[in-house]
């Protein structure tokens, strides 16, 4: 296998093993994600896309197999090291996962707080990213006052703030109307064009069409790979 920024080898994830509610969400999946690539994980609901995304993004640990990020095996990392690896990544969640009542610019820069950046510097960084995404005017507004599309763009801004090497997006357009989805697709393409690796799990054909590689999953197995 050619090495890429992310590699998965024989990844499996079993929930509630050994019980009557055991679920084998992922079963022996192996793939390589090239640096700078735009990769889509496709497949029906329950195929294991979100689980695979979580494992690749160090949000969860596999039951067996391993994930390498820039040649570093994630399962050998302690919790502290995993957190550090996550700082090189960005995440966009399906339900936006913004902190309610917290203004947009604070939501965007919350990941930077443990790095000791002052509020002024964080605000400057937030303004830069929000301007890029057309949200400069909404910097002081809480998430409750935003539309779905705006919320998702804030989530993208939060993913971008730390200048990540890779961004993971889990069904980023599923809660958006068509117009907002189209806008977001364009934004993701633009981010990828800047050199950031994108890994997106989605049903949305808009995003599939933009991808450089599509991995199709079914029942927790990789059934197809297309460029």
């Amino acid at each position: 296998m050619n090495s890429g920024i992310l590699e998965a080898e024989s990844l499996s994830r079993v929930y509630h093993p050994g019980t009557s509610s055991e679920v084998r969400a992922l079963n022996g999946v192996s793939l390589v994600i090239p640096g700078g690539g735009y990769v889509v994980l496709a497949g029906p609901s329950g195929s294991g896309k979100t689980t695979l995304l979580s494992l690749l993004g160090a949000l969860d640990r596999p039951t067996s197999g391993h994930v390498k990020f820039s040649d570093r095996k994630l399962e050998e990392c302690s919790d502290v090291e995993l957190a550090r690896q996550r700082r090189r990544m960005g995440f966009v969640f399906q339900d936006f996962s913004l902190i309610p009542r917290l203004p947009v610019w604070e939501n965007v820069t919350y990941p930077q707080i443990p790095r000791g950046l002052s509020a002024v510097k964080r605000r400057q960084a937030a303004d830069g990213v929000l301007s890029r995404l057309g949200l400069a005017a909404k910097a002081d507004v809480p998430p409750e006052e935003l539309s779905g599309g705006e919320k998702q763009r804030v989530a993208v801004a939060r993913a971008l703030i730390g200048d990540p090497e890779v961004i993971f997006a889990d069904e980023p357009t599923s809660n958006l109307d068509r117009r907002a989805a189209t806008e977001l697709a364009a934004i993701l393409q633009e981010i990828n064009a800047g050199g950031t690796t994108l890994v997106v799990s989605t049903h949305d054909t808009l995003l599939v069409e933009s991808a450089s590689r599509v991995f199709t999953l079914e029942d927790g197995r990789l059934v197809d790979e297309a460029a």
């Binding site: 996550r86 969640f93 902190i99």
Partner: peptide
Amino acid sequence: SGRRREIGVLKATGWQTDE
């Protein structure tokens, strides 16, 4: 549950457990 999710998001964005 809201706080739990909030902590999950913090961890996902790079916060460590001790932080």
